[in-house]
Nucleic acid binder design. Structure first.
Lengths: 203, 203, 203, 203
DNA sequence: CATGAATGAGCCTTCATTCAT
DNA sequence: CATGAATGAAGGCTCATTCAT
């Protein structure tokens, strides 16, 4: 019992530090952020952080775990009982586009950047976030295909193409594409139509 | 005349340093790479680098310019007189997927990572690389639409969706997606079909 | 209470570092001295210095503050109840001439040199050391004038002339004037006579 | 003949470089000034400077020589046939105070600073500038004493006191003494009176 | 467990000087 | 003699990490 409380305390403290770290990382980026910055934001001493995290990179790991938890939570929110595929797809696409606003956006940038460059982080990122997300998407696509809502063709690759598109659009927005920024709200429907109907002539 | 030779010498030396930098960056990443590493790779003294580049970040700038030059050169290679849209689209898509192999891949990772995190770099990246690339794509889409090969609908956003998809797939591959890696060769045709025909039921 | 002890510890450490810095500066000069030199002299690590001082220049600032403290302490030592003006003036003049011996001399040189060249330092030097010293001298001159011991004429400028003379003599000694070096001990009385009686014919 | 022209050319070039150096030193200080700065100011290549001067310090040496030449030239200008000692002394004192205005002032600061800190420079400075100046002053004092214009007492030390006073006043002005700055014009007469008559009561 | 002072490795950058052309 | 690119030593400073209290 005591042990459990202890563990809860630890988990809380970890979360507290992680939130501080996420906040400062989002603001300044990973490398420019110092342990002292994080400690100050969290209102604790530098050394204390090392009682909960192995090193600075481990903080990013922790943040990624947190992101995974959030993502799962979010995914569960989507109403799965949609009948019309177009409407559902829009909702499905709207989700990641809207999730990454404000500080989340900045954090996405920072995490992505470091993941690109750090192999260890990359492995964890793939295993913890990307893979589950893709697995979920695949399951969905298979359901839809089974229900006759989409063609049962190259589902795995097409799912990857769609999710890559979403990630790419977010990145491109970050890069400063004014049109994307302006039309962000309309994207879900535009993308849903394109994905379902294709761009080619229909005749 | 002498002036031109001088300038050529300088351009050559710059290129030499840039290649060394690109090579080391690709191998170790941007931050872990020291100026000394690059100098050693280039076979020159540390200080010499600073006769050609303002600072370490400026090297990345230079690499991005180089990438732009290469991209333009590559783009020019695509045969523009294709009649069958499907075949052309495959070629068009195959290009970026194949360009980024080996060291290019690694470099893409490093540049992307730093661009994500450095606002100054981001601006240049967008202006020098992304924007021209998008402009070129838009022109292409408009030609196709004018030729009745694709629907004249939301061309700008759809072009962005397609290019984002490509960038996203490359990133996802980098992250370690085994399926993408395995099916990389088949991607162009899978994507072309999906883009042209859509995933929805056709009836 | 704890707080005070902490502060005392910090003050002590600062003083320790300052003494090390002063010693090395005096020996090698400001620019030729490296942080590592000072750290070695103080028996601490390089980085520790930066826990107490903003940068290298800040060390010189600290030294100047110390000098000010010492100067004030010294000034208080002069017996103010002298009746005979000549004797008092000698004591008053002897003071700065004797204070700057040995390492103090060298430090004076170094501080002066850097103050000459660094505007920020110059401001602090003037405010912290020169101005108070001049203010003290002015007060003294006014007392003497009020007591009828000296003429109440151009006191402010004359005080500046006298203090400038002292500073100049020290500098000239530093420059290598053999006569000054040889007669240094006799200077106070020679100067006192000259200041009080003038060089002109009296008749 | 050719040799002489050669030498004149060399002397001219040296002077040209020296003027450029003095100008930049005066503006930026000795250490912050780079050889490239001086070369740019002189409109020549970096390396060329080393054909005329051994190193950066040697440029300061050259400047000091130049200053000596100027000082001698200036000293010769003073009308030596003055009968009234007070008027002459005023002129004599006014000279250094007025000579160091504008860029001269700044250069004085820079040279002084470096001389303070560099033993080699100090030796030269003393031998080339200070010693001759003092010798000239001593000769003058002896003339005046012989003519019965001043007391024949401690002439050598008193001369040093007077010249130290002048140097000290200039320094103190540099440090930012507002009163000195404001009353600079009146200094010569105030000092002359003080030097001749003393500050003590005359009764 | 919390603290935060101490550590010291390490890096970017500058710049006086050299020397091949 | 002029040039200016190449050199490379050197130093101030940062900051992740440790550990005694």
């Amino acid at each position: 019992m005591t042990d459990t409380i202890q563990e809860q305390m630890i988990a809380l403290r970890r979360k507290h530090i992680l939130e501080a770290a996420a906040s400062v990382f989002a603001e300044k980026g990973f490398h420019p952020t110092t342990i002292k910055d994080i400690a100050r934001e969290a209102g604790i001493a530098d050394g204390t952080i090392y009682n909960y995290f192995k090193n600075k990179t481990d903080l990013l790991m922790g943040i990624m775990h947190q992101m995974k938890a959030n993502a799962l939570q979010d995914a569960a929110v989507i109403p799965m009982d949609a009948q019309d595929i177009r409407g559902f797809l829009r909702t499905y696409l709207r989700h990641p586009l809207m999730a990454l606003r404000g500080e989340h956006f900045a954090l996405f940038r920072v995490v992505n950047a470091e993941v690109m460059v750090n192999a260890e982080l990359r492995t964890v990122y793939y295993r913890e976030i990307l893979e589950p997300m893709i697995a979920g998407g695949e399951a969905l696509f298979e359901q839809w295909a089974a229900a006759g809502l989409i063609q049962p063709v190259e589902l795995k690759l097409r799912l990857r193409a769609v999710s890559a598109m979403m990630a790419g659009l977010i990145t491109q927005n970050i890069m400063g594409d004014a049109l994307l920024e302006a039309e962000w709200e309309r994207l879900p429907e535009v993308l849903a139509d394109m994905i379902l109907d294709g761009m080619g002539k229909t005749d």
